[in-house]
């Protein structure tokens, strides 16, 4: 079949909301873009376990510890769903991890910020997971089948993440003066980086057009960011916390909140590797991979021995593959 015909069929599927599946023909650039997006999404989940993992041993109660453990466990699982989806496009797990460890692949820059207090757990669950949900719900209908299905599974699990975060902030805001201050301080530090999670503004996002043509992306960065602000400001009012933006103002004409200018220098700086925790995050991941090598090798050796034992017991000789 000619490439033109295959391409025509591909665009017919895109335009008719028919999913593209692993063995379907797809443009090389579509494949490359998806591998990059899905693998970086996966890396974000795994690296995202680190800032919250930091507080598991210091959670203020047994319930909070169990809940935080469950959340971090979920993030690990999300990473797996996404790595699986990426592997259907023809890249291996080892290659993707190598890209992460050598800095060739990125992960969401939000995870390059430190978690300084327990209230950060609340702020992250509420704001960071909240922003992620806003991004991920439309992705449940993204054009690539395995990615969409992974997103459906992720979204089901993600809602408890946001609720536990908001609950933490709610409790703190009803507590002592020290607790209220801690909650406000966490909001002050996590608000702007959360807005940056939606990526650069539309007029500075060259990939957006192609991603939207291919139905990988369904809403622009600015559209999602605006929605997040509108929704979250109302939630902040409920717990009596102040969003750290003096320019925040309801605009009756637009039907949306106007908000202040984002410091894009900070955003690009963190993306380039100069955020507070970039080096630390990567070192932790590299260390985990390198120091875990003996476990991976041992598991394979053990599996090999188990297989040989079974075959001997069955009275068969080991068969050459």
């Amino acid at each position: 079949m000619s490439v033109q015909l295959l391409e025509q069929q591909f665009y017919e599927k895109i335009d008719n909301e028919v999913s593209i599946e692993p063995r379907d023909w797809m443009p090389d650039q579509y494949r490359k873009t998806l591998i990059r997006q899905i693998s970086q999404h996966a890396h974000s989940e795994i690296v995202g376990m680190l800032p919250e993992g930091n507080w598991i041993t210091r959670a203020p109660s047994l319930r909070r510890k169990a809940v935080l453990l469950a959340k971090v466990q979920d993030e690990g699982g999300h990473g797996l769903y996404l790595y699986s989806a990426a592997e259907t496009l023809g890249i291996s797990r080892d290659e993707m991890l190598d890209q992460l460890h050598t800095g060739k692949a990125k992960y969401s820059s939000i995870f390059n910020y430190p978690t300084l207090t327990w209230a950060d757990m609340g702020a992250i669950g509420w704001l960071v997971d909240g922003a992620a949900i806003m991004n991920q719900v439309p992705l449940c209908r993204t054009s690539y089948g395995p990615y969409a299905r992974a997103m459906v599974r992720v979204c089901k699990e993600e809602s408890f993440h946001q609720r536990q975060g908001f609950e933490i902030m709610l409790q703190l805001s009803k507590g002592t003066e020290v607790q209220k201050k801690m909650a406000q301080d966490a909001l002050n530090r996590w608000w702007w980086p959360s807005l940056m999670m939606f990526g650069p503004p539309d007029d500075n996002s060259p990939n957006t057009e192609l991603s939207m043509r291919w139905r990988i992306k369904r809403f622009t960065n600015d559209e999602l960011r605006q929605k997040f602000v509108d929704v979250t400001v109302e939630q902040a009012k409920l717990i009596g916390l102040t969003v750290p933006d003096p320019d925040l103002k309801w605009n009756e004409e637009r039907g949306h909140y106007d908000f202040g200018k984002i410091n894009w220098d900070e955003f690009w700086n963190v993306v380039k590797g100069n955020g507070p925790c970039n080096r630390q995050r990567l070192e932790t991941r590299r260390k985990a991979w390198e120091e875990g090598k003996w476990v991976r090798d041992a598991a394979l050796a053990h599996a090999g021995k188990r297989k040989t034992r079974k075959e001997k017991a069955a009275g068969q000789e080991t068969v050459a593959a």
């Binding site: 080892d94 991976r296 050796a301 090999g304 075959e311 050459a320 593959a321």
Partner: peptide, 11 residues
């Protein structure tokens, strides 16, 4: 490849 003796480095 003899399955019992050698193994690839990736599971």
């Amino acid at each position: 490849e003899n399955g019992a003796d050698s193994f690839r480095s990736e599971w």
